[in-house]
Design a protein around this nucleic acid. Sequence first.
RNA 1: UCCGCCCUGGUGUAAUGGCAGCACCCCGGCCUUUGGAGCCGUGGAGUCUAGGUUCGAGUCCUAGGGGCGGAA
Length: 379
Amino acid sequence: MRVLAAMSGGVDSAVAAARAVDAGHDVVGVHLALSRMPGTLRTGSRGCCTIEDSRDAWRAAEKLGIPYYVWDFSERFKEDVVDDFIAEYEAGRTPNPCMRCNEKIKFAALLEKALALGFDAVCTGHYARVDRDADGHPELHRASDWAKDQSYVLGVLTEAQLEHCLFPLADAPTKAAVRAEAAERGLSVAKKPDSHDICFIPDGDTVGWLAEKIAMEPGEIVDETGATVGEHAGAQAFTVGQRRGLKLGRPAADGKPRFVLSIEPKQNRVTVGPERLLAVDEIRGIRISWAGRPIPDAVVDPATGASARFPVLAQVRAHGDPVPATAQVVTGDDGDHRLVVILDESLRGVAPGQTVVLYQGTRVLGQATIDTARSLAAV
RNA sequence: UCCGCCCUGGUGUAAUGGCAGCACCCCGGCCUUUGGAGCCGUGGAGUCUAGGUUCGAGUCCUAGGGGCGGAA
């Protein structure tokens, strides 16, 4: 196959590219430039797409003896990821930019260009597996190393995208083994720290960064009874489940910490309360996508406007535990499909804008963007 | 303008006259391809003021300041 290896400049994508070469593919390395302005991405151990990273990727490509290019996707990245990130926070929601990037950039803009240039697949260093069912349709599964498994952030991929994905690290036993392999191969990035945090926020100060993009107004922080307990500099800077940074002068009567329960940007109000009020067991999602063929139970019956109810494992954060649940696709008033997930056990800190990914065993069924999350017990 | 109770980090509270503790909060670290959460820390911050008793005072005494409460 002709394979385009996306090389971030980190260990994983370098080893993945190396494995693709070993597998006999015709590999070309490409690094995505996501910002034209130096200093607007996290650097050093933090970011994933800086100038230094492109140099690391280039050195790795050279070591592997493959052609190497840098493609500028800064425009698309700004429109589809950064601007979306800002708009979501403005609306009082909590976006997941990494998923947007996978959905719109790495496996969309990049993949489209690769296919147009005659490549058969895009190879990345994600820890996830693509299997084929009996009919040859792709299925997305968790990686062997559950500790590093990244199938959650790939839950947005569609069947068409999965058709062209190559994840050579699917069977990597551990991250340490990947690093060891990188060292053996003489890759200079073997000991490079993992990337984390949001790549386009240079110093990791998300609130400070948002404050420059969004007009924020001071407002009230109220508790679950409606009593004013403090004030904030802008409701958009908060997220459901947040504990730190509330700067409430007075502790709660019971001396327990308080968490953000909800954000109402229109009223510019933030509501806080005790941990138990964070528990939710019904999650409703919009913008559903299926990672491969939807399972038969998830197909909406035109007669009823709803699918069957089917058992799943629901995961609401990249490294959260999946919890048993029952899912159903229903048709909303606007004709759009909605995902309704009833959890067997409640979860805390589920913020609108985040992503719920559905699994059955190791298989990723699909995902939806969380629209609402609530407790079914009377409030 | 008589009597009683109270005053401890930013906040809420502990301490038979014997090292001022706990919680919230804040800060730092760990974790993490999102936000948060979680975990760790010898981290930050306090006895209203002035005297007195005592080997030793947050604690007892006196005066002052501040806050509650008392059918005249």
